[in-house]
Computed example of a mutant assay.
Amino acid sequence: MTDIEVRGLTKTFGSVYAVNDVSFAVPAGQVTGFLGPNGAGKTTTLRMLLGLERPTGGTAVINGQAYRDLASPRRMVGAVLEASGVHPGRRGRTHLSLLARAAGLPQQRVKEVLEVVQLGAAAHRRVGDYSLGMRQRLAVAGALLGDPEVLILDEPTNGLDPAGVRWLRDLLRELAGRGRTVLVSSHLLSEVTQYADRIVIIAGGRLRYEGSLDRLTTDGQSFEDAFLTLVSDPANHLEQKEAHR
């Protein structure tokens, strides 16, 4: 079973701490929601996990290895950090075919993932003609090409209509049910609570909470109230980190 371990992860830009001594785990077979307000350090953390940013300190590993050391990254990890990095003149099917070829993956996966993300009928269209939601689905298709053990998504519901949001929710639950490791970054609290098994909250670059949703709301607070309390008080992260390590 493949999992993610983040330990003491830190990233500074000059004198500014974007991420400050953050530690948490993402177990296999569950969906972990990675939450925080805008500017909390979520995307920077994911970029370090995926080898796109070099940490100032600490480690972030997948199955005990840094992303750069994985033998077959696309077979181990599928990731979506943004859905806009596709040439608008390229057809959806062509884009996925090129990704598969570059990763040494069988071309039959292209048709399979297009059906999974419900873009089969639009595969011949140019990406520039896609809606934002369709581009998001295409990005998820690219992440799924290698049938990865780990799926990492940053704000995946951007641009999705209600039907698309439900589709993504069901997909994440299905993948977790098959033993995959799923980490989803979002600032949409109500949506994440519908599919996440565990929650990691950061704010101001620091960990504020790691644990189950139920454990966060045991005192009768709503999840929204508990979240806002955690991210508004800089002292809270120490207590929660110790309590839920």
Rank of each mutant, 00 (worst) to 15 (best):
M76W: 03
M76P: 06
V77E: 08
V77F: 12
V77N: 11
G78H: 12
A79E: 04
A79W: 09
A79M: 13
V80E: 01
V80W: 13
E82M: 10
E82F: 00
E82G: 06
E82V: 05
E82W: 10
E82C: 06
E82R: 02
S84A: 10
S84V: 03
S84P: 04
G85A: 03
G85Y: 07
G85V: 00
V86N: 11
H87W: 01
H87S: 03
H87T: 05
H87Y: 09
P88D: 05
P88H: 02
G89F: 12
G89H: 04
R90H: 14
R90Y: 03
R91I: 05
R91V: 01
R91F: 02
R91E: 05
G92Y: 01
H95R: 09
H95W: 06
L96G: 02
L96T: 05
L96E: 12
S97A: 10
S97Y: 14
L98N: 15
L98V: 07
L98Y: 15
L98H: 14
L98S: 14
A100Q: 05
A100K: 06
A100Y: 00
R101C: 07
R101V: 15
A103T: 06
A103E: 10
A103N: 10
A103R: 04
G104N: 04
L105G: 15
L105M: 01
P106W: 13
P106G: 02
Q107K: 14
Q107P: 01
Q108K: 14
R109S: 08
R109P: 06
R109Q: 13
V110E: 09
V110R: 06
K111Q: 15
K111L: 02
K111S: 10
E112Y: 01
E112S: 12
V113S: 09
V113A: 03
L114D: 00
L114N: 00
L114E: 04
E115I: 04
V116H: 05
V116Q: 04
V117M: 08
V117G: 00
V117K: 00
V117L: 11
Q118I: 05
Q118D: 07
L119Q: 02
L119K: 01
L119E: 03
G120N: 15
A121I: 08
A121H: 06
A122C: 12
A122W: 04
A122N: 07
A123D: 05
A123V: 09
H124C: 03
H124E: 09
R125H: 10
R125D: 12
V127L: 02
V127F: 02
G128R: 11
D129E: 13
D129H: 14
D129M: 14
D129Y: 09
D129R: 14
Y130R: 02
Y130L: 00
S131P: 15
S131Q: 12
S131D: 05
L132N: 07
L132K: 11
M134D: 08
R135C: 13
R137E: 12
R137S: 08
L138S: 10
L138N: 04
A139H: 03
A139C: 07
A139N: 14
A139M: 11
A141Y: 08
G142I: 13
A143T: 11
A143S: 05
A143N: 14
L144G: 11
L145T: 12
L145F: 06
L145Y: 12
G146H: 06
G146I: 10
G146S: 08
P148M: 13
E149M: 09
E149D: 13
E149T: 07
E149N: 09
E149V: 12
V150H: 12
V150W: 15
L151K: 04
L151R: 01
